[in-house]
């Protein structure tokens, strides 16, 4: 984007940055779960890096993240010499600024020093740590050069104030929000509520499928909670879970019929991630015919029959 700024000292420009030949050599991630370190990869597509989790369980707004990488900077002597960005006795610094887009968190960290010398290629290691819940959809990283230690020279128009930002050299966006499906279940604590409950808030089949629009709620404050078993479904608790899930899906279909003409689920395509898409998938999963869907008794039987086979 064009800047209207009339600078009082020279700053980095496209030409200089191009000559610095900046390259993000590697970027990797890790997260810990149950004291086990799990690895995350980033894959570049277009201008973004997308997170991949081999376990298929990492979620940006829930899990922690440790990222580390290498940034290569070449020919950086031109900053002191050819392009007159800094005096030769000035120490420049490289900083990374991260912005957690979606959570508005931002922070800048110094990661390297650049001084005028003969060897003018440098590989900079950097690492950043984020606690659980600190991140959101996108993590934007911006690498910049700044005046780390200025030398005063009255005859020079170059930047002479320590801390002055000379410009950005590289940026990348790490897309942390994946597209892996997640069953909408939450644990609540409510003295007033039953053991399980559900919330349906969609108004159209085009609404986004999320915990905000449809959700199964399990109440931790209920006295039977411990008997339910929320670690996993096994032979010990399968009967009660089958019944909860059967009721959950049954209610979902019944409510959906009150909200929109349910026939369009059979006749139309719905985008991935929409309520319509979810309903369509569920109707196929449970093998529910258009006729049975409108008959509560048959619907109830069909769901339970399929659940017996699924679980």
């Amino acid at each position: 984007m064009m800047s209207n700024r009339i600078e009082s000292f020279p700053m980095l420009n496209e030409n200089i940055v191009s000559e610095l030949n900046i390259e993000l050599i590697t970027i990797e991630g890790e997260y810990s779960f149950n004291n086990i370190i799990n690895k995350l990869d980033f894959i570049q597509e277009e201008n973004n890096d997308y997170v991949l989790d081999n376990n298929g369980m990492w979620k940006s707004d829930i899990n922690n993240l440790h990222i580390f990488g290498k940034l290569e900077i070449s020919n950086y002597n031109i900053l002191f010499d050819e392009y007159n960005l800094a005096q030769k006795d000035t120490i420049l610094g490289v900083a990374v600024t991260y912005i957690a887009i979606g959570s508005s968190k931002t922070f800048t960290k110094s990661i390297a020093e650049l001084t005028y010398q003969n060897n003018d290629d440098k590989i900079i290691d950097f690492s950043l740590d984020f606690e659980e819940g600190e991140l959101a959809a996108i993590l934007s990283l911006k690498f910049s050069i700044y005046v780390k230690n200025a030398q005063k020279n009255n005859n020079s128009v170059l930047a002479q104030t320590t801390g002055t930002m000379l410009g950005e050299i590289y940026n990348c966006n790490l897309v942390l929000e994946g597209q892996g499906s997640e069953f909408p279940i939450v644990i609540i604590e409510s003295l007033e509520s039953p053991l399980w409950d559900m919330e349906i808030n969609f108004e159209s089949f085009d609404d986004i499928f999320s915990k905000d629009t449809i959700c199964l709620k399990i109440n931790k404050a209920h006295k039977q909670f411990t008997k339910l078993g929320v670690d996993k479904i096994s032979s010990n608790n399968i009967l009660i879970w089958k019944e909860i899930l059967a009721s959950f899906f049954e209610n979902t279909f019944l409510v959906a019929q009150q909200i929109e003409d349910i026939d369009i689920i059979y006749n139309e395509q719905f985008q991935e991630g929409t309520i319509g898409g979810f309903l369509k998938f569920m109707l196929m999963t449970f093998n529910i015919s258009q006729k049975d869907l409108k008959n509560p008794t048959k619907l109830s039987i069909q769901i339970r029959k399929e659940l017996d086979q699924l679980l």
Binding site: L52, D53, N54, E177, G178, Q179, G180, S181, E182
Partner: peptide, 8 residues
Amino acid sequence: GFGKIAIK
């Protein structure tokens, strides 16, 4: 397609 978890 039905969530925001990092995929494999």
